[in-house]
Design a protein around this nucleic acid. Sequence first.
DNA 1: GGCTAGCATCGAAACGATTCGATCGAAACG
DNA 2: CGTTTCGATCGAATCGTTTCGATGCTAGCC
Lengths: 311, 311
Amino acid sequence: MADAAGVSLSTASLAFSGNKPVSDATRQRVLGAAESLGYTGPNPLARNLRQGRSGVVGIAVGQLSTAFRDPAALPMLDAVSEVLGAAGLGLLLMGDEDDHARLPLDAVIYDICGRETWAAYDAFVARGIPLVVVEGPTWPGTTFVDIDHRGGSAALARHLHDLGHRRVAVLTLEPSHPQRQREAGLRDVFPDAVVIGACASDHGAAQQLASDWFDSSPDATVLVCQSDVQAAAVVVEARRRGLSVPGDLSVAGFDGVPTPWLDLELTTIAQPLGDKGRAVARAALARIEGDDVEDVLLPVTLRVGSSTGPA
Amino acid sequence: MADAAGVSLSTASLAFSGNKPVSDATRQRVLGAAESLGYTGPNPLARNLRQGRSGVVGIAVGQLSTAFRDPAALPMLDAVSEVLGAAGLGLLLMGDEDDHARLPLDAVIYDICGRETWAAYDAFVARGIPLVVVEGPTWPGTTFVDIDHRGGSAALARHLHDLGHRRVAVLTLEPSHPQRQREAGLRDVFPDAVVIGACASDHGAAQQLASDWFDSSPDATVLVCQSDVQAAAVVVEARRRGLSVPGDLSVAGFDGVPTPWLDLELTTIAQPLGDKGRAVARAALARIEGDDVEDVLLPVTLRVGSSTGPA
DNA sequence: GGCTAGCATCGAAACGATTCGATCGAAACG
DNA sequence: CGTTTCGATCGAATCGTTTCGATGCTAGCC
């Protein structure tokens, strides 16, 4: 250790951490000795043990390739990473299969819906690790960050109603907390909207579902989707069949992400992805500090594009 | 601690870790005591310090939202995560801005090209942390995993030459190690291929570049792109201008990822993304064990689709 | 019966920092 | 000049494991 060159362990530690004042001369001596001995600074593992923190926050997103294929996931992840990084914390990706209960995490973010997919939830709760859940159900020991699914869907529904639409079809996500909220919002305006099927936010799956639906000679004048990816797939499939959007069918999405390969702007519910990520990260930070944290509900905005028109 | 209920610390440790045999009766007693005292198993931080390992591998990908917007990034990330997870290691996302030198990482993967973006490289080398570089230049202390950019590009070029094409335009990535290799492969066949511009693998940017190029009344019969995302954007833009693909212009991509919103199959160089990820992860694991690791060069395959045709 | 093996358990020494409280001088103050 | 104060430094305790070597004990062997 560098203290062979002049000072005590405690002083050397202070010279590196700056937790207490150290005279300039001493600091120079310590840093110089470290340099010449090839000492590269405090061992992070030892620091972590002493401080009882790992400096790492886990984020569970289900299967990685599925989770990030949806463009809505990225801006949020970016924001989370940015806020945590600024606080000196790292972000650890938790796939859905591995046993992450043995890793030293300061907090865990669940960015998927459905309690059943919360890997290692019990272990984390038992160890007292703060949990932040995005768009999931509330659960003991958990801080909750959500967007206004229901209000957004209702706003979209009113927009469609104003355009004269009465026969509404819905392409849903697989059953989940946000999905239920969105359906409720839609039914506030269209109680008898008809669900044509459910799939993940995936272009191929949505296009297949839309194709089957078109085959059934539907009479709806608008198809409401649960993501812009789904909506884009529906537009592509409609056109492939010679249908015009919004002439023959109006299509609405959710999320408000760019779909640059379409030459129209989707009508969609834009959610504040960056705000959501920042709220999540701040909640995690606060809980790590031991502060009490309120659940967060973020507003969404209806963004009217050119994929919806008069019935 | 649980040893208040019967045994010594060492035995309790063995009961949990299983590193040495412990009698069944003792194990039961230890586990029972742990249960009733609310002890949730060995503290990961302490274990890490003792063992000198954190169980976490970092992966640097540049800005997150940019890196993962490219669909080619995900299958590889998935494979990396799967192999590391099976070995009990976690994967930590390193954005390009933060100081990750203070985190306890067992190894670091650089999945971006260009030495200048290797955040904290010097610090990691100084601390003796194994580094694995994907598609980057070789560098001291580094294990290198790459695909055969040059051979793949040359194979594509021969395919185009066979189709009768002689006037070739190229849309490149920003300058980087793989980009240089790919250009070399192309020029093995078409020495005077003309570069029309460079951009990241991003739909919007590529479409803009293609648009400018079409405005210049080009005489090339084929446009070679460096990713399927770029190629898809070019196809979209060509059609928007009433050009047929491959009738008026052949288009080729790179990567071999699905482009479900196009109704044609891109001609492309398919790279083994899963294999690449697994090779990277295995290299990291081996280096963590202290083994010597050979650099890896993976083959690619030409996949002829319907976006290229006779000149 | 004595000796050797082998198994289960234990004690103590790391792992490498941070941090609390004490000490020691020198400066400031009356 | 005596006393207080403050800043810099130091010693020792602590974080919670894992692991090495030693110790007992039982069983097997000749």
